[in-house]
Design a protein around this nucleic acid. Structure first.
Lengths: 129, 129
DNA sequence: TTTTATACCTAAGAAACTTATGTATAAAAT
DNA sequence: ATTTTATACATAAGTTTCTTAGGTATAAAA
């Protein structure tokens, strides 16, 4: 769909990753952001991730909100409603359990990266060989 | 299920990754292996990945075979049957198209890794902080 | 001779998304 | 003034990609 990828000098440019890759990392991303920023609301999370990744990772609301509800149900996050005029925001924060979950998930992903780099022989060859 | 993870000195040890993470990388793994090794049969792929990752990534046959069939249908790989006694092996090889797909997928994943490292602030903090 | 390893396969179900849709307020543009 | 865009929440149907569970068969090891 939005998979318009262009080659460039020494860098692989892709407007957006295939959803396959992002699949499975959403919880990790959310938990880590909450860990680093204290409290955030849903829409803010989508915008922050989009900005930080130059649009390469765009979290859809259809993916975000069910995930937030799921994390809350499992006790990793909690929220407080805040009104900006008449418009509501649900500010989420990590619970103690969520702090641990965040650390575990990030560590696991970091380990996964190293394994995949070895398996795919990344770093020992240039991107545009 | 097999998510028994233990802390260790400066290293995060996990017997096997949650399936969430591996999800989406299977095609990339298969195509890259075929690129590096020329030809391989299904069972050999599962064993090779298991060995190379010390059991951290274990491709199930229920995931592998449908993926191989899908890649073949899309024209990325082809196969030749080979008989070892009465037992059959399907040796898969990359097509020209598959060579390109492999390169694109690995590059995309390498880029994804860099983005995620930035997003999750990996490398700038130790695993067991 | 039974178990394990090798080697292929499919089908039902689960998980985690996308796409589409809905509601409503506030700001910006025409 | 009115239309569009941005903000902010949400759900539901459908798709993809896996897991789990089953099936078939040969060869080697216990």
């Amino acid at each position: 769909m939005y998979k318009i990828c262009l080659p460039k000098i020494l860098m692989y440019i892709c407007l957006m990753y295939t959803s396959e890759l992002i699949k499975g990392t959403l919880k990790t991303i959310i938990l880590n952001l909450l860990k680093e920023r204290g409290k955030m609301y849903g829409y803010e999370i989508t915008q922050t991730v989009k900005e930080m990744t130059n649009g390469k990772i765009q979290i859809t609301e259809g993916a975000l909100y069910p995930t937030l509800h799921s994390l809350e149900k499992k006790g990793d996050i909690g929220f407080e409603k805040e009104y900006i005029g008449k418009r509501v925001r649900k500010y989420y924060t990590l619970t103690d359990q969520g702090q641990k979950t965040a650390q575990v998930k990030v560590n696991e992903f970091a380990d996964f990266i190293e394994t995949m780099k070895y398996l795919l022989d990344i770093d020992s060859k240039t991107s545009n060989a």
